[in-house]
Simulated assay, not measured.
Amino acid sequence: MKKEGIILIKGTELQDLINKAVAMAFENVCLADKRKAKTVETLLSRNEASKALKISLSSLNRRVNDGSIKCYKIGARSFFKESELENLLILLNK
């Protein structure tokens, strides 16, 4: 059977224990927030994407339909991630 008892400690020792526990908890919360933090993606409209890629809107539509460029729909509007378009340009220029 487990014995329970009272431990006597000084007020300063108790304060140190509490400070350490709070500091560890705060550090864990900060680390969790950093893991959850997401980078903000810049979304481009169809017109902006076609200008960035230096292609016409019809060419952009053709590339979306054949799957070579990924498109994100929000309602009836189409958007493109700027980072994905940059990566596509890098691949094409190699």
Score class of each variant (00 low, 15 high):
86 E>V: 08
44 L>D: 05
33 D>K: 15
89 L>S: 07
65 N>Q: 13
46 R>W: 00
3 K>F: 10
4 E>A: 10
32 A>C: 05
35 R>T: 12
65 N>D: 10
90 I>D: 10
39 T>W: 01
11 G>E: 11
23 A>H: 14
33 D>F: 09
7 I>E: 11
48 E>C: 01
33 D>W: 07
93 N>W: 00
47 N>W: 03
50 S>T: 08
14 L>V: 02
32 A>D: 11
30 C>M: 09
63 R>M: 14
35 R>Q: 13
27 E>L: 06
89 L>D: 04
66 D>E: 15
47 N>F: 05
80 F>G: 02
73 K>Y: 09
28 N>F: 08
1 M>K: 14
12 T>F: 04
32 A>Y: 07
5 G>A: 11
26 F>S: 10
24 M>I: 14
68 S>K: 06
91 L>H: 12
17 L>N: 06
80 F>P: 02
44 L>W: 07
63 R>K: 15
13 E>K: 13
46 R>M: 11
34 K>N: 08
13 E>T: 15
92 L>M: 14
34 K>S: 08
3 K>I: 14
37 A>S: 08
63 R>S: 07
35 R>N: 13
63 R>H: 14
67 G>M: 05
51 K>I: 10
48 E>K: 12
88 L>P: 05
49 A>H: 00
69 I>D: 00
23 A>M: 15
55 I>R: 04
31 L>I: 09
19 N>M: 11
78 S>H: 11
66 D>R: 13
67 G>D: 04
62 R>S: 01
63 R>V: 00
90 I>N: 11
61 N>P: 00
56 S>Q: 05
3 K>Y: 08
55 I>P: 04
22 V>Y: 07
82 E>H: 14
68 S>Y: 01
39 T>E: 11
63 R>F: 12
11 G>L: 06
31 L>Q: 13
51 K>T: 13
7 I>H: 07
43 L>V: 02
26 F>Q: 07
49 A>R: 00
56 S>Y: 02
14 L>P: 01
72 Y>V: 14
79 F>T: 04
16 D>H: 08
89 L>P: 00
53 L>A: 10
15 Q>C: 01
41 E>D: 13
68 S>E: 05
51 K>P: 04
77 R>N: 11
63 R>Q: 11
33 D>A: 12
29 V>D: 05
42 T>Q: 09
75 G>R: 04
44 L>P: 04
15 Q>E: 07
6 I>P: 01
65 N>V: 00
2 K>M: 14
73 K>M: 11
68 S>N: 03
13 E>Q: 15
35 R>G: 11
43 L>M: 14
27 E>P: 01
93 N>D: 13
26 F>I: 06
24 M>C: 09
87 N>W: 04
9 I>H: 02
51 K>R: 15
79 F>G: 02
36 K>D: 09
80 F>C: 03
69 I>R: 01
73 K>N: 08
86 E>F: 03
73 K>P: 05
94 K>Y: 06
87 N>Y: 08
70 K>T: 11
2 K>P: 12
5 G>K: 07
35 R>W: 06
14 L>G: 06
23 A>D: 15
9 I>D: 02
72 Y>P: 01
76 A>M: 06
37 A>L: 09
77 R>C: 06
66 D>T: 11
